[in-house]
Amino acid sequence: MEFSALINGAILGAALIIAIGAQNLFVLRQGMARDQVFIVCLLSSFIDGFLILVGALGLGSTIAAFPWLVPWAAWGGALFLVGFGLMSAWRAIWPKPLIAEADQKIVSSRKKAIMLTLAFGLLNPHVYLDTVVLLGSIAAGYEFAARIHFVIGAIAASFVWFFSVGYSARMLTPIMKNPAASRVLDTIVALMMFAVAANLLLGQVAAI
Rank of each mutant, 00 (worst) to 15 (best):
G9A: 14
A10V: 06
L12A: 13
A14G: 10
A15F: 10
I17L: 15
I17S: 13
G21V: 10
F26M: 12
M32L: 15
Q36K: 11
F38C: 02
V40M: 09
L42V: 02
F46S: 09
D48G: 05
G49F: 10
F50G: 15
L51N: 04
L51I: 01
L53D: 06
G60Q: 11
I63P: 05
A64H: 06
F66L: 10
L69H: 02
V70R: 07
G76N: 04
L79A: 12
L79D: 03
G83S: 10
F84W: 06
M87W: 01
S88V: 02
A89H: 07
A100W: 03
A100Y: 02
A102C: 01
K105L: 07
K105F: 03
V107C: 07
I114S: 06
T117C: 12
T117M: 14
L123T: 00
V127P: 09
V133R: 04
L134M: 12
L134D: 02
L135P: 03
G136W: 09
A139M: 13
A140K: 13
G141D: 00
E143A: 15
R147P: 02
H149K: 11
H149A: 15
G153I: 14
V160H: 07
Y167I: 03
R170P: 02
R170T: 00
M171A: 15
P174T: 03
I175Y: 13
K177L: 10
N178M: 11
A181P: 06
D186L: 11
D186E: 10
I188C: 15
V189S: 03
V189P: 00
L191M: 12
M193D: 05
M193V: 04
F194I: 04
N199D: 03
L201W: 09
L202T: 00
G203A: 09
I208K: 07
